[in-house]
Amino acid sequence: MSGGAGGWRAALVTLAAGLLLAAPELVLSGAEAGFWGAPGWRLAAIRLGAFWPGLLSGARAVFPGQPVAMFLSYGLIHDGPLHLSINLGGLALLMPRLVARSGAGRACAILVAGLVGGSLAYLLLGDGAAPMIGASGGIFALAGALLARSGQRRPLGLIVIALALALEIDAAADLAWQAHLGGFAAGWLLGRGREPGPPRRRAP
């Protein structure tokens, strides 16, 4: 695949992931602005989709399967446009690089694994029953994977990663450091894995 084609693929994958993250916030912000729905939609979305640790210790779920779905659904809900924008900024910085290095499928898998890893870390290391929202666990996973793949050979890449992490941390009004740590660890572990190589050709 040529560099131009690879660049377009990375851009399209990043755009698709960004749209997936942005769509719920667009609906919720529009409802709060009075364009449609009701202002209470955000609270309803948090109740339905946030990561609630109590659901795994006896609290009653709103719908069947919520205790499982919340390990991913929390990443689709944000506290507002600023919260979403920071995560989209990290996605735009990191996702194209990871797609270019590891492929679209692997990069998307790492993003999802970061959400799961972030929720597990929040469950194990958190000290309360407060709900968690936001895709930063997945963004930190992208950073962890890139760091694992780069080592010390790509200082520019490390600078970009550090910038993305700084933006995440500085903009977080209520920092869920457990999710960031868990997402980063998941991405780093997956980034250490062997990349798929071209298929071998057998001699006749």
Score class of each variant (00 low, 15 high):
S73K: 02
G128N: 13
V112R: 04
R202I: 02
G157E: 15
I159H: 03
V68W: 13
S136C: 13
A171M: 09
A176T: 03
R9Q: 15
G89R: 01
A185G: 03
P53M: 09
L19T: 08
L15E: 10
A59S: 15
L124H: 03
M70V: 11
L88W: 05
S150E: 14
L115H: 07
L163T: 14
S2V: 00
G49C: 14
I139H: 08
L115Y: 03
A113E: 04
A162L: 12
G183D: 05
L111T: 09
W41H: 02
G117P: 03
R194V: 03
G193R: 13
G105R: 04
L48A: 15
L20K: 05
L12P: 03
G6E: 15
G49T: 08
R47Q: 15
L123E: 07
R154F: 09
L72I: 12
P155H: 10
E168D: 13
A135C: 14
A69H: 10
P199K: 06
W188E: 07
L146C: 10
Y74W: 07
M70A: 13
R154K: 09
P196R: 04
M95Y: 00
I133R: 03
P155V: 10
L72S: 08
A162V: 04
P96K: 02
A164D: 12
A33G: 11
Q152F: 02
L84F: 01
R201H: 01
R9K: 13
G193M: 08
G58D: 11
G118H: 02
A17V: 10
G187K: 04
L48W: 12
R101G: 07
S2D: 15
L55V: 05
G183T: 02
G58E: 11
P131R: 07
I86N: 10
